[in-house]
Design a protein around this nucleic acid. Structure first.
Lengths: 117, 117
DNA sequence: CGAAAGCGCAACCCGGTGGTTGCGTTTTAT
DNA sequence: ATAAAACGCAACCACCGGGTTGCGCTTTCG
């Protein structure tokens, strides 16, 4: 299974594009939708949204470039679905950062306690 | 304590700006640096970087707007540090999203297994 | 067969963003 | 007191990114 490995610095540089891909409300909405309702066509993904079909298409391309989704042609439709492995990678990065934060928070707390008065 | 609460949709909309804030290599480097080396001045954060001090300043502002860092004046220096309180909230949002993904991944896996042949 | 559905391509617009440079202000150090 | 350090402000630039519109192509359906 493709897990998040390597040094912290390596992973972080890899994580930036992924975070950027998720750092847009529309795209995050698409991912959420794919999570909730499973693989869908473009029109279906567009439905209920306030942007055009072309906008959704662009965002899907962006997500695909980040490896988060992938599509298959089916007749006159194109079905998009989550790339679960990559999503797992993202989780890995998030956990890494979270643990880093935890360490930093702990150190900061100790530092402040020592400093205070 | 300020914890991450609210509906999933609410947290989703809150998460997008956070991802965006972390979705830049330079900014991600800054938070990593603040994690590893603790509170620092701007020049010190700039040192070793390939961008100008002003660029770092801008990124720090962006991170501050996302609530990830915060600064205090100290003489002629301005010291930036992680916003530990907010960081806990952020962890909450991200974990919630991660768990949503987990569910989706599980469902997708089952779906594929059922579909395949 | 003909109409409509679903999509891809391309042009275009515009605002934000990452980055720089220049200059002024305050604080520190000698 | 004067020089240098650290910073803030502002202007400027290039580029990308989110969004739209228009058009043409293939596939489905009646």
């Amino acid at each position: 299974m493709s897990r998040a490995r390597g040094t912290a610095a390596e992973n972080l540089s890899k994580a930036a594009p992924l975070f950027a891909a998720l750092g847009d409300a529309t795209r995050l909405g698409i991912v959420t939708r794919l999570c909730a309702a499973g693989p869908q066509s473009i029109v279906r993904l567009t439905d209920g949204t306030k942007v055009s079909r072309q906008a959704i298409t662009k965002h899907l391309r962006a997500l695909a470039q980040a490896g988060l989704v992938h599509s298959t042609r089916d007749g006159r439709e194109r079905i998009w679905q989550l790339q679960t492995k990559r999503l797992a990678d993202v989780r890995g990065y998030l956990e890494q950062i979270s643990s880093q934060w935890d360490d930093a928070i702990e150190r900061l707390r100790a530092f402040v306690e020592h400093e205070e008065r």
